[in-house]
Amino acid sequence: MIAKTTTPVIELVDVTRQFQIGTHVVRALDGINLKIESGEMVAIIGPSGSGKSTLMNTLGCLDQPSSGSFVLNGQYVSELSDNQLAETRSRQLGFVFQSYNLLPRETAISNVELPLKYSGGYSGKERRVAARIALDRVGLSERYDHRPMQMSGGEQQRVGIARALVKNPDLILADEPTGNLDTKSSAEVIEMLHSLNENDGKTIVVVTHDIEVAEAMKRIIAFRDGRIVEDRAVVPKRINAQSPDRDNQ
């Protein structure tokens, strides 16, 4: 589609974000200009306090910039109301968190259904079908009714990815998705993201401080003190693990 190539998924223009801590003003984002096109696979790296988490919150429509503009799929996010932000989160992006953030009492399928519950228009049956498809996509066909406590970290993270996928958004935002995982599970998650990028055309943005994870992406943007200090394209270097590809495609 032509529109997709001309409109970037993400466009930040002179974005700043300041926090007042006592009398001290912290500039977490300090004049960020950034474009991410559809189908990109981007790693955002930087030490803690570099502003990458604030960027993630901004991209995730959980936070608004202090100044500058953030355009998501052609829409000025800065102009949206609280309810519209919630709708944008629900419709246009999927979150993957470091600590999975699953509801502990709910089953895998029920966790994956959650975003559908907040967007209306889905019957209970439609929700379950969509959740099963998403869980199948991440290779958890046998874990529908398991609760988070009954699954390994890698499996929980894949439930998290399924939840991000269930409404079929174009953009997946992953905040340290491998931060709590061992090497093998990390490799599986990275492979999963690659598969989503290459086979489903999803735009992937991963925040990490793990250089190995960053180098598995196709573009690396480095942050320091609220500014972009490096932005380069790389050839993805897959993480080496005994069984790196367990996708059932």
């Binding site: 309810n83 919630a86 989160r89 629900s90 979150f95 953030n101 959650l114 975003p115 907040y118």
Partner: peptide, 16 residues
């Protein structure tokens, strides 16, 4: 609190 955060992140409005 965390559950509330999760729900909000996946699209729950304040009203929800």
């Amino acid at each position: 609190t965390r559950e509330i955060g999760i729900r909000r992140a996946v699209g729950a409005k304040r009203r929800d």
